[in-house]
Design a protein around this nucleic acid. Sequence first.
DNA 1: GCCCCGATAGAAACCCTTTACTATCGGCCT
DNA 2: AGGCCGATAGTAAAGGGTTTCTATCGGGGC
Lengths: 357, 357
Amino acid sequence: MASISEVARLAGVSTATASRVVSEADYPVSAAARERVLKAVSELDYVPNALARGLLKHQVPVVGVIVHDITDPYFAEVVRGVEDAATAAGFLVITCSTERNADRERSYIRLLRSMRAAAVVFAGSGRDDPELADDVGRHVAGMREVGAAVVHLSPSSDGEPEAGVDNVAGVAAMVGALVELGHRRIALLAGPTGLIVARDRVEGFRRGLAEAGLAVDERLVVHTSFDREGGALGIDLLLATTESFSAICCTNDLLALGALARLAELGIRVPEDVSVAGFDDISVAALTNPPLSTVRVPLRELGRRGFAAVERILGGAAPGHVTLPTEVILRESTGTPRSDEVHLRPVIPRAAMGAAR
Amino acid sequence: MASISEVARLAGVSTATASRVVSEADYPVSAAARERVLKAVSELDYVPNALARGLLKHQVPVVGVIVHDITDPYFAEVVRGVEDAATAAGFLVITCSTERNADRERSYIRLLRSMRAAAVVFAGSGRDDPELADDVGRHVAGMREVGAAVVHLSPSSDGEPEAGVDNVAGVAAMVGALVELGHRRIALLAGPTGLIVARDRVEGFRRGLAEAGLAVDERLVVHTSFDREGGALGIDLLLATTESFSAICCTNDLLALGALARLAELGIRVPEDVSVAGFDDISVAALTNPPLSTVRVPLRELGRRGFAAVERILGGAAPGHVTLPTEVILRESTGTPRSDEVHLRPVIPRAAMGAAR
DNA sequence: GCCCCGATAGAAACCCTTTACTATCGGCCT
DNA sequence: AGGCCGATAGTAAAGGGTTTCTATCGGGGC
């Protein structure tokens, strides 16, 4: 593989001149020399060595994106947004699926650091785990120190994200929409307790109810993991209470998907027996049975803004904070409650319950 | 950020010794010296510079995965498989969503090359485009030349993939299952003509029919793009013919998803009026309305095997070729045809047709 | 005619590791 | 006792580029 010195030799110039042409440096090079270098480049099929360049600049044009799981449509979409913006700037994107596992996260950050990645974007939410925060924090500080950009797309222990959405307002708006449909007793599939976004969304739920003058029934707030399994389990947990409710608000779409599946298994009709609402509007949301009412989050745009923040930081500017708007999308999983006063608790086949756990 | 020389200084040894400890080289270092180095490492929070190392080794532990779109569940799953295997080996994964765009693909390969990535995995299928093949081929050859591994997960102009599935047998098996249900006139949403996988799957369709002693009606084979839009369009195209059919076989799940959506819009019931089958078994397939019958492809495993091939090549061994098994999964989008002799062409609201194009 | 300056070119140092090669030191073999 | 060998340590080069600094050259100002 040709190096710059071979290019220089073939062009009959010094490596300095060749470098100046190739890297488009801000330094005068005569037209004749430039032309000869360019000719040599194409003749030798020269591709500059990003490692050598990076070694000198203490940085390579690579951005790592820390996600829970690239297979989760939420993160896939965000990563794609980052990628779109990054590619335009000549950056490569490294995907890091941590499964929210502290060790994996640590090891990814370490690898990224050893690679002198120019930036890390945390797409997923921070956890409320001081131990991890400490350790990752050390690495993150180390990266920042050498000029790398660190950007968050969700609230974290670092504070407000450089680009994010108003989770509280989003859920509150959905609760408002549900109330408007006539629901009074609304359950919440709240997701994990340790995840900051989940907590924000729970707060949105509380605010939404408060704004409608409704009280929160804590028995209708159930915490599970942030995935389909959690959604199914959430339904079982909810039905195991003796409380009645006519709508279920979920803090993300995956939860809603799992809830929908479990409800269908139990023979509980949506939205006739109970309404279900999600959050995020991942692409499958429109495809479920019935199509899921949810809160749209501009995920790809979020990713793009994340990279924009990276560019700003790398350019030495203050990153700033931008909040993207959310929008309530009412599809067919929500409807008016069956009765407007007392909301019947759906009858479930007892036999099915044991198996669900 | 601490460098190895600082570590060496603090430990009171030479950089050579420090390096030998840090990089776990196969060279004797006294226990005392080793301990002092390790202490210095943790004291300085030293992280080796992968760029310097890579510069010397002409390679960094990074593998690029070329996909159509990371947002497509098929690719997300494959990338995850690659990532799982790669992480275990200390490699980082770069996602490259090319949108099957020649320029993007070129530029990604170039970037990967400039980065001295140790490997490139082509997750998506090759296209039948000699111009692109040429150009990408040059870069790929360039990568191979410096010892980088190039692995394909789908048939390409390079020949058989290092890890893949038997697309022909897979579709043939699904056609067989459809025939067994009683279908005789089966339509095919064939996907793009230029994509090699799509072509293999069409061949599987032909073989499946041939094995059942059935003839292919070319009017029932329609080509569209490989996505949901293509599926919707395919339905319109099919209905625009005057041919009857009782089942629709799709060469991938996205097509089937689009078909399902369009059929629902047109008021055509699945599977009562027509059966629909997909291919790939992406995770949403089980969530659609009705749940999609499809052919399961072990996507994550495919990704893992892809990285395994990378490791073999990097280790100097011959890559070999492994074919992963597929499995027909019958869910609720397929059923017995309404009449077993003459299959009625579904009645569609004419008005809806124009809008679909 | 001389000095200074801008434009252009090149030499060499530097970024951080790895590693081939050289050096030192005991101990063991003969 | 001398030579040789194994274990351990260090020196320096190399890998490919960028950049600072120095050098050369021609021309304009006075």
